[in-house]
């Protein structure tokens, strides 16, 4: 039904949009691969200063073994530990919760789901200020548990909401069918329910991890030096010397912290998109 004219019009419209979306990303990668001299000298780059003639790993060694090592490497570990622990706890709690919601009809079920949704809209900045005082009294300020707890708060309501939507699609009759066929309820759960529920739980875990991984408000305000995660540490990056811009190091760090997310999304894209829009719209 489409005329050639429409087709070319659409192609023409998509080019600027693609450029607008993608060029900054390619530029981040390009900048991270420029040596300190190439960052300042046009002659060492091609495409009008865009891509370096020779790829240099200077910026990556700067953040992993060089001057920014003490800032970046511990922060990366903190990010990984804090986000994994928080994700694990909130997904386990959310699984129980969503299982109960999906399997039971009881008064107040809708209220619980609506509370979960409302709470996930709660402005984090309003939580940071009271927590700051409380955490200092409890000696949780600038500690890993001091970040794990708020990250559970951040991810738990979201996980409950997404998992409830996933569990809704599971054909629960199969659990009973297995029991009728002589399986114990534990066997029915392990052999029938768990394999069906696993993809949903896994997707929820990825989205929860992504949410915690991206947080800046909690990590920049509830930590000082000993428990900083990557987003907060990035902010204190400086260049190789006091007078150089930290651009190269920032781009390298941005690439490093984005890679795990990109890998997860590339591997599980379909499910994640369904999860992100689930409970909200039909995926």
């Amino acid at each position: 039904m489409e005329t050639n004219k429409t087709k070319w019009g659409l192609a023409g419209a998509s080019v600027p949009i693609m450029l607008w979306t993608l060029i900054p990303i390619v530029w981040i990668v390009a900048t991270s691969l420029k040596s300190t001299t190439a960052l300042a000298d046009q002659q060492q780059n091609v495409f009008g200063n865009f891509w370096p003639k020779s790829i240099s790993w200077d910026n990556y060694s700067l953040i992993f073994t060089g001057g920014a090592k003490d800032l970046f490497v511990p922060a990366l570990w903190h990010s990984i530990v804090v986000c994994l622990v928080a994700t694990l706890i909130s997904v386990v709690l959310a699984t129980f919760c969503a299982y109960a919601i999906a399997r039971l009809d009881f008064p107040g079920k809708k209220a619980i789901l609506i509370t979960a949704l409302t709470v996930s809209f709660f402005p984090v900045i309003a939580m940071v200020t009271p927590l700051f005082n409380l955490w200092r009294i409890l000696h949780l300020f600038d500690t890993l548990p001091g970040l794990i707890i708020p990250y559970i708060t951040l991810t738990l309501p979201l996980s409950i909401w997404i998992l409830s939507a996933f569990f809704q699609q599971i054909p629960w009759e199969m659990e009973q069918a297995a029991q009728v066929d002589g399986a114990s309820s534990w066997q029915a759960f392990v052999k029938v329910v768990a394999p069906l529920a696993a993809p949903g739980v896994f997707t929820t875990a990825i989205i929860a991890f992504f949410t915690a991984w991206n947080d800046f408000v909690f990590s920049s305000n509830l930590t000082a030096a000993r428990a900083q995660t990557v987003p907060a540490a990035l902010n204190s990056f400086t260049g190789a010397s006091q007078f150089t811009q930290p651009t190269g190091a920032i781009c390298a760090a941005a690439v490093v912290v984005t890679i795990p997310v990109v890998i997860l999304v590339l591997l599980f894209q379909r499910r994640i998109v369904a999860g992100l829009t689930s409970g909200a719209v039909k995926g």
């Binding site: 981040i28 800046f216 907060a232 811009q245 941005a254 912290v257 990109v262 590339l266």
Partner: peptide, 26 residues
């Protein structure tokens, strides 16, 4: 193409903000 169009959403927001400041608007 669809995957590539999602890419900006995957970048850690603080990293994206820093990159825009230092590598794009500089």
């Amino acid at each position: 193409v669809r995957t590539m169009m999602i890419a900006p959403f995957l970048i850690v927001p603080e990293a994206a903000a820093l990159v825009w400041k230092h590598a794009l608007f500089n």
